[in-house]
Design a protein around this nucleic acid. Structure first.
Lengths: 211, 211
DNA sequence: TATATTTGCTGACTATTAGTCATTTTTTAT
DNA sequence: ATAAAAAATGACTAATAGTCAGCAAATATA
């Protein structure tokens, strides 16, 4: 049955077109100010159709978030080198996250929107599955930490699962702040980079194997 | 002129009554779902009056945020002991922040709403002044770190100003996550406390003076 | 090809709610 | 007692997320 398959593809295509349009509006006007009417206009579809593909504005934003996650994951994967010690790779992952927050700043903001958002609970199975993909970057972090336990470069008194959560949240917190701190610019005699480098230094020392 | 003074007091009183009502509604329904009509009803005032005292719903929420900041500041102040080394006091400040996020959870959520919110820029002088008060907890952190530089318990290669920003953001990030992680409860074989303790451990080691 | 059926799309409509402002009520001054 | 000033009101507007009855296009059937 070629028709069914073609229809499936077309549906997927339309879905992506809608996400493209939404992304454009979300990123240009800001998540808050973007309206579904504008997105519909940009997608050259009626508003009703948007709701055939996505339950709500929030879910549309979540689709963008998924793209963000995938980009971040691939940045993480490209940041590590098999030959290096895990601690060094972790530092590279950290730097990759910093790059992500700058080079994909709009995606990063979307990520922050969902980070620790208790209003967005995955109820349906589909949703659950999608949400699982969102923790992929942290899973990758976890795996690297496990390698670090094996190669002896990471402290072993804290389980890699917990360490991963810590590093992820600490770094997200730091990046969120440095994004906002510009507005107090007259109060700070130091740069974003100063804070980020200090952060990386602190956690580097904090997770290093004591000897 | 006793009348002018009394009027001033009454105005201040009314302002506080409105904040009380707003807090009640914000905390019970959630910031997002709370409506100005409900708050007006709770305050036994008309909606128009609310707007005589506060420019917007957001500004009303900000008034609640100010209360949150003051509570947190006082918790920080009570956490430190003059006799102790600064590193130990910093650990106590960290624990005080953890307590705050639990015992004043609604206030903590309000704090998070404004933490690194680039949409809320202080324009007027009054606003600027209020915003300054919001960094008081971090200023206190900074002062404690400066003490630590003097008493030799804190590393000196990173300026206290930067260290303070790091500790604040890292810990806020951690607390935000642990608040949200409950929803993935089946995936984690560890508790909130495990993550928080690990975090405190990591930064403790990270800011300690190397010898 | 003509007709029926299914699938996809539409946009006018509803409901909700933040914020406004002309009017009324209350308080103070004369 | 009256005028002026200050405070409060609530009906109204504007904006927008989400709905749904009906229309259009694509596909299946005869």
């Amino acid at each position: 049955m070629g028709i069914a398959e073609r229809k499936e593809r077309e549906k997927e295509q339309r879905r992506n077109d809608i996400i493209d349009a939404a992304e454009k509006i979300f990123f240009s006007k800001g998540t808050e100010n973007a309206t579904m009417d504008e997105i519909a206009l940009e997608a050259e579809l009626s508003k009703g159709t948007l709701y055939l593909y996505f339950k709500s504005k929030e879910e549309l934003l979540f689709a963008v978030n998924l793209r963000a996650t995938r980009i971040l994951k691939s940045l993480f994967e490209n940041a590590v080198s098999p030959g290096k010690k895990a601690v060094e790779n972790l530092l590279e992952i950290g730097r990759a996250y910093v790059r992500f927050s700058r080079e994909y700043h709009d995606y990063f903001k979307t990520l922050l929107h969902f980070e620790g958002n208790e209003n967005f609970l995955p109820k349906e199975d589909l949703h659950k599955k999608i949400c699982e993909e969102c923790v992929d970057p942290m899973i990758f972090l976890m795996d690297t930490l496990r390698t670090g336990v094996k190669d002896g470069s990471i402290r072993t008194d804290i389980p890699p699962e917990i360490l991963a959560h810590c590093l992820w949240s600490q770094t997200t917190g730091i990046l969120k702040l440095t994004k906002a701190i510009d507005f107090h610019t007259d109060l700070k005699p130091f740069s974003e980079d100063d804070i980020i480098n200090a952060h990386l230094e602190i956690v580097y020392h904090g997770i290093l194997k004591n000897n």
